[in-house]
């Protein structure tokens, strides 16, 4: 009989079994494809490694188009091999183009937020604007490292705490320190949260600004369980 039994426990079990078989099939198909893909990638990796060895033999010709193209091959396969790569070019052509684009995108927004933006904020903004073809954090960082050598209007800066920001080239620490010292004199003391609110910047940046002011000797700290407050540096300013 070809009629399926649709009733009873046996019927249910059969239909379950059939469904299982189908998913099994599609899963194993998917993995087979994946394995093929990986085998191909493996070949690509070995090939690119031999190419990199070849380049190493012919040391020193920088900015040659071949190496540029080779680097972009490496990029497209997601192989990170900066040690051998770095000997041939300062960094990738791709990063350079990206850096130029970044400086174009960021120049205006930077002015709006006061000339400084944390790298995570930059990452958010750029990727949200892009929609597709997103940047990886590493790509962004590498591109930002190229900002300074390319003489673009924005530069990457790392604070002592390790926080990285993009800032306008025209940004001047001294001016910030001066204005903060003035603010401290007016208010008596301030926390990073309070500064963030009154200046309209993020808490991370407010904190860094206060720390820079402290580094310049214009502020001193009061560290308690309540908060880290900053005071004008009366130790150096007051003559007693």
């Amino acid at each position: 009989r070809t009629i399926k039994t649709r009733t009873g426990i046996i019927g249910i079990e059969r239909s379950l079994q059939e469904r299982q078989k189908a998913t099994d099939n599609s899963i194993s198909m998917a993995f087979q494809d994946l394995r093929k893909l990986m085998e191909m990638a493996k070949d690509m990796v070995t090939i690119s490694k031999t190419i990199s060895a070849k380049i190493r033999e012919r040391q020193g010709d920088i900015t040659e188009d071949e190496t540029v193209r080779f680097k972009s091959y490496l990029m497209s396969m997601g192989i990170d091999d900066p040690v051998t790569r770095d000997a041939y070019k300062t960094s990738n052509e791709y990063f350079r183009q990206l850096a130029v684009q970044l400086s174009q995108i960021l120049e205006e927004p930077l002015k709006e937020v006061g000339g400084m933006m944390t790298l995570t904020d930059v990452y958010c903004r750029v990727n949200r604007a892009r929609g597709l073809e997103l940047l990886s954090p590493e790509d962004l960082l590498n591109a930002c490292r190229q900002l300074a050598p390319l003489d673009l209007p924005v530069v990457l800066r790392a604070f002592d705490s390790g926080v990285m920001v993009i800032q306008a080239r025209s940004h001047d620490d001294n001016a910030v320190v001066e204005s903060l010292a003035e603010l401290l004199r007016d208010k008596g003391s301030i926390t990073a949260e309070e500064l963030a609110q009154s200046a309209g910047i993020s808490i991370v940046l407010a904190r860094e600004r206060l720390l820079v002011t402290e580094k310049y000797g214009r502020a001193c700290r009061d560290d308690t369980i309540e908060a880290l407050r900053f005071y004008p540096n009366l130790f150096l300013e007051e003559v007693s």
Binding site: C220, R221, D223, T224, R229, Y231, N233, L234, F235
Partner: peptide
């Protein structure tokens, strides 16, 4: 009576 007096200041001169 100056609260920062009770926190060790990181700035060397201070």
């Amino acid at each position: 009576n100056f609260p920062p007096f009770f926190t060790l200041q990181p700035h060397s001169e201070t």
